[in-house]
Write a protein that binds this DNA or RNA. Sequence first.
DNA 1: GCGACAG
DNA 2: ATCTTGTCGC
Length: 234
Amino acid sequence: MQPSDYESLTPTQAIAYQHELRKLINITPLDKPIKVIAGADISFNKYSDIVYAGIVLFSYPDLKIIGQSTAISKTTFPYISGLLAFREVPALLDAWNKLSDKPDVLVLDGQGIAHKRRLGIATHFGLIAHTPTIGSAKSRLTGKYEEPGDEQFAQSPMYDKGELIGVALRSKKKCNPIYISPGNMVSMEQSVEIIKNCIRGYRIPEPTRQAHLLVNKIRIESGENNNMQFNLFD
DNA sequence: GCGACAG
DNA sequence: ATCTTGTCGC
């Protein structure tokens, strides 16, 4: 199975593939010290199948931008909750392959193992790219948790079927929490610690935040949507 | 059957 | 995710 084949999968086949990948998940601690971290994200125009992917590289823990890569491609796989990876991973992998140097760990915008089949986009990407990943999501997909306190870095464990699958983290006071979970090749504790070290005054961790700014920038610059003010619909 | 539902 | 201005709270 190759990411380029995802578009031909039916949702049922995609789920079957997730069950296969699940057997390969490994969230033992990363022993190598982190020197380089990266954030990845996707952007696209409403009603368009053109996907803009980007990855931003940072030194760690000082978080200075040291590189980036982008990729533009089409996706035909629709957005289906629980199957996000089949829509976004192909483009992200293109950007990943263009990267001159690979990071010690990659932060994805979405869940890691905090997924019903433990296959959020961060876990999925980590498994096929054979690289350490962390999932940092803006909203919950699966799991029960108590609302964390309002102090910065207050956190609360997320459980599913009696299993610890993630942590709801108050990255900023007066803001909704973000949901952290290991993708692959990183432990739960390390994932939370690393993300905490990446908060720079905003709710969203810097790697993801910068990747988001980058992909929106290349999307706007592409001019793909320049004639939309005259669209009869919408 | 009903509610939930990453981006 | 994207479309979008103002506006309420700290």
